[in-house]
């Protein structure tokens, strides 16, 4: 048998109240082992309070070559930002 253990992407919540963030990846035979390996590799100094592991093969990523088309539509929509609106300086609490 010459198969490698699959790759898992590791996401860690560093403290309560924060989002999980991508930390890196590990190899593991199954999900339980992936969690244990992620714990050993990425949280040796209490860097996390929660871990997600996801098989890398299950991730669909956007193509950097198509980044233009994908993100272009939001570019000219300046009216989605609060600073777009002209309001008097005297106005408070807004």
């Amino acid at each position: 048998m010459k198969k490698e253990w699959p790759v898992w992407e590791v996401f860690i919540r560093s403290r309560s109240g924060l989002d999980h963030r991508h930390a890196g990846s590990v190899h593991a035979a199954d999900a339980k082992m992936a969690l244990e390996n992620a714990r050993d590799v990425y949280t040796r100094r209490q860097e996390g309070v929660s871990i997600w592991v996801v098989p890398s093969a299950s991730i669909t990523a956007s193509d950097p070559e198509e980044g233009g088309e994908l993100f272009e539509p939001a570019k000219d929509k300046v009216y989605r930002h609060p600073t777009f609106y002209d309001l008097p300086d005297e106005l408070t609490h807004m």
């Binding site: 010459k2 490698e4 790759v7 890196g24 990846s25 590990v26 190899h27 050993d40 590799v41 040796r44």
Partner: peptide, 26 residues
Amino acid sequence: LAKVQDEGGHGLYLYSACETLGISRD
């Protein structure tokens, strides 16, 4: 012991970084 474990961890971070370039761990 903690230092040697760290070095093992460093190796693993780097192998993972390297694998993103399309080469397998094996």
